[in-house]
Design a binder for these strands. Structure first.
Length: 268
DNA sequence: ATGCCTGCGGTTCGCAGA
């Protein structure tokens, strides 16, 4: 089963790319971020025509997340708990019935998350980011008690290590690389989550985002900020993680590319 | 040094992104 995450930077501007990629790659579950659309305007019919169920948590103008799935949703939960005043649409969880390699039934949980950018760090945006990460840690810790396969997929807006950027020097002091941001991500790993890409590849220079500006793509001036974090039960079934770099070279691309984790689980 | 580019809202410029 292929589970993907992709920040598409606007569904209206990206629908052709999304349909092309779904057709080419055929992920079983695709977590999208930055749909920049209200739920009513999301082009669900075109995506359903490719055999996907669609669940969104959108808002007007910016943010917004979605999960596309060939499997039926058993359950959907919107909003990250912990702050009832937080109106930003950055979190959606789907639950699916799957079976493992021994035909045992399992409940697979998949989250599509869009973690706040946090810049500039001297504004309330940075504490909002850290607060959001703290809520994610607490939520994830609760979910781990279920001892189920759980995938936290999304745009984390965190550069984990120096080797996850072409030029790490320019990110020092940036919210994406601040010690507090990185420490929170590391605490998530401390709880038992595995960075799917790093489980299989410790090479430097694997990126998921290239800025539109200053020829970043042409210079391969990228960063790795889109991650699939796996619970122990999900990590046990990890086969392969890949980055769909070719998509960045397409016509009218997002500034992010899809990342895919292949798990040894099948639809029930 | 700051902007470089892109998407969106709602009109043609401001904000957000990373």
């Amino acid at each position: 089963m292929k589970i993907a995450t992709w920040n598409i930077n606007g569904i209206k501007a990206r629908i052709d790319n999304v349909l092309q990629w779904l057709g080419d790659t055929s992920p079983d579950i695709a977590c999208l971020q930055e749909i920049k659309s209200i739920d009513e305007n999301f082009p669900r019919m075109e995506i359903e025509a490719l055999g996907y169920h669609v669940e969104t948590h959108g808002q007007k103008g910016f943010n917004g997340v979605a999960i596309l799935s060939k499997l039926r949703f058993d359950e959907v939960n919107r909003r990250l708990p912990g702050d009832d005043d937080d109106e930003q649409a950055r979190f959606i969880e789907g639950v699916f019935s799957v079976r493992d390699e021994h035909d045992r039934p399992k409940a697979l949980r998949v989250v599509s998350l869009y973690l706040p950018n946090g810049n500039p760090v001297d504004t309330d945006k940075f504490p909002y980011k850290l607060g959001w990460m703290g809520r994610l840690e607490r939520w994830a810790e609760d979910r781990l008690a279920f001892e189920e396969p759980l995938v936290l997929a999304g745009d984390y807006n965190v550069i984990p290590q120096p080797e996850d950027a072409k030029n790490i020097d320019v990110w020092v002091g940036d919210a994406l690389y601040m010690p507090e941001s990185r420490q929170s991500l590391r605490r998530l790993e401390g709880l038992g989550f595995t960075d799917a890409l790093r489980a299989g590849d410790d090479a430097a220079g694997i990126y998921t985002f290239w800025d539109y500006q200053a020829g970043a793509w042409q210079k391969n001036n990228g960063i790795r900020i889109d991650h699939l974090m796996l619970s122990p039960e999900a990590a046990d079934h990890l086969r392969l993680t890949s980055v769909e770099k070719r998509v960045r070279a397409w016509e009218k691309p997002s500034d992010h590319v899809p990342v895919i984790a292949e798990l040894a689980l099948e639809a029930a």
